[in-house]
């Protein structure tokens, strides 16, 4: 009984920790308006085959071309001091993205810029900080600052990747060799 309770407590604690860490990560990736309103968003890069970016959150989509190529394996420091141009529409990751802001109401973004002042790296995450200015339809504008989080796409085969790959391949080959040996040589 005691053991069950301990497991249950541990499970609840782990769930809470997971939820809070996820909320923390989301809360620290945002665009802030001049009025102080924070819009949660994440930054993505894609190679399409030219490189594009997209800032995506519940209340906004901003997309455009990258001014310089980035290496997914290494870091994004090359973007420090660069200005990203936001387009009204952009092909990104095979999808046609329309830049919009939906808070309050859905408004299309006609153009804009995002100036990156600082790039910091924390483990496999990068944080890009800077300021933005967007021209919305009907002549409205929106500006403020941002701190956006993105992840390194390190696709190099990791140690665990090696382990899973070799173990899987060796596993199926050994099983096949065992079976054929048994069938052809060991069986009467």
């Amino acid at each position: 009984m005691m053991k069950k309770r301990t497991i249950l407590r541990f499970f609840i604690l782990a769930t809470l920790l997971l939820c809070s860490s996820s909320a923390w990560a989301q809360g620290h990736s945002y665009l802030k308006t001049a009025a102080g309103k924070s819009l949660q968003a994440e930054l993505e890069f894609h190679r399409d085959p030219h490189q594009t970016f997209a800032v995506r959150g519940d209340n906004l989509v901003l997309a455009g071309d990258l001014p310089v190529n980035v290496n997914y394996d290494f870091d994004y420091s090359v973007l420090e001091g660069q200005t990203l141009t936001v387009d009204g529409e952009q092909q990104h990751g095979g999808r046609n993205l329309v830049s919009i802001v939906t808070s309050p109401g859905e408004v299309r973004v006609e153009s804009g810029t995002m100036t990156i002042n600082k790039v910091t790296k924390e483990g496999e995450k990068a944080f890009l900080e800077g300021t933005y200015e967007l021209t919305l339809e009907e002549g409205k504008t929106l500006s403020g600052e941002f701190k956006l989080h993105t992840q390194f796409r390190d696709y190099n085969l990791s140690s665990l990747g090696w382990v899973f790959m070799l173990a899987s391949i060796a596993g199926v080959w050994l099983l096949a060799i065992f079976c054929y040996k048994k069938l052809l040589f060991d069986a009467e």
Binding site: D73, D154, Y155, N156, L157, S158, L160, G161, W162, F164, M165
Partner: peptide
């Protein structure tokens, strides 16, 4: 190639 294998096999 290592990136390709990583794309497929990194857990």
């Amino acid at each position: 190639v290592m990136g390709g294998l990583g794309f497929m096999w990194n857990p």
